[in-house]
């Protein structure tokens, strides 16, 4: 069976829908992983031991096991305890939490690097500890790690292909559906690869714009 790319056009709609879902799940998980990362970083640095240790353990667990395994756990595990989530939501939680752990490592390092005087000055000006953290320390720390967080977001985009295995109809599963009807694996996976590549380029452009916008010295 040779290659015949004329099988693609009838499935343009299917693939386009897949692209939209890939962008949607990536965006939703990216937002979750960003704010989740901040929350986890604050917990890791400021929460009392009794809260910090279990979080530390779960973070260690999530950094040491494959994302695919975590997705199975979340998708099938939550059903087990009576929470029946749609695959999309399970995918967002899985991807979002996985990358939140990685983001939190970056943000923690940056928060430690923020000058102690910043917190002290904010407290002196009458802000509560929580206000000082949210309004003074966290924004400075986050700005410093925008580029590496951007790298995590790119990794997230590519790992979003994994949610196809729990049945989210994103780009990879859309390609698989088309292959199920045409038996043309090479053509459709090649098309999916090209589409991922284009999304990736777009995302890199957005991240670069965002980095420049938030740079301290221009």
């Amino acid at each position: 069976m040779g290659l015949d790319f004329s099988v693609l056009p009838p499935f343009y709609g299917t693939l386009a829908l897949g692209v939209l879902w890939t962008i949607a799940i990536t965006a939703a998980s990216a937002v979750l992983s960003f704010f989740g990362g901040i929350l986890l970083a604050v917990i890791a640095l400021y929460a009392p031991m009794a809260i910090r240790l279990p979080f530390r353990f779960v973070a260690w667990l999530f950094m040491g096991t494959p994302l695919l395994l975590q997705l199975f756990l979340i998708y099938f595990g939550l059903v087990q305890i009576g929470i029946d989530l749609p695959a999309f939501v399970a995918g967002v939680i899985g991807l979002g939490f996985h990358f939140a752990v990685y983001n939190s490592e970056l943000i923690q390092t940056a928060m430690i690097a923020v000058d102690k005087g910043q917190m002290e000055a904010a407290r002196t000006l009458g802000l509560s500890r929580r206000q000082a953290l949210i309004k003074v320390v966290v924004p400075q720390a986050v700005r410093d790690v925008i580029p590496p967080i951007g790298n995590n977001m790119i990794a997230l985009l590519k790992d979003s292909a994994l949610v196809s295995v729990i049945g989210v109809s994103e780009l990879t599963l859309s390609a698989q559906r088309a292959i199920g009807q045409t038996y043309r694996a090479f053509e459709f996976y090649a098309a999916a690869a090209v589409l991922y590549y284009i999304i990736n380029l777009g995302m890199e452009a957005v991240l670069r714009w965002f980095e420049n916008r938030n740079r301290l010295y221009r």
Binding site: A161, L162, I179, A185, F186, Y189, A192, Y197
Partner: peptide, 17 residues
């Protein structure tokens, strides 16, 4: 620039073509 899963599928399922 592309997901490892897609590369794997391309090689395994698309390779025979």
């Amino acid at each position: 620039g592309t997901p490892a899963l897609i590369q794997l599928f391309l090689l395994y399922f698309g390779g025979p073509q």
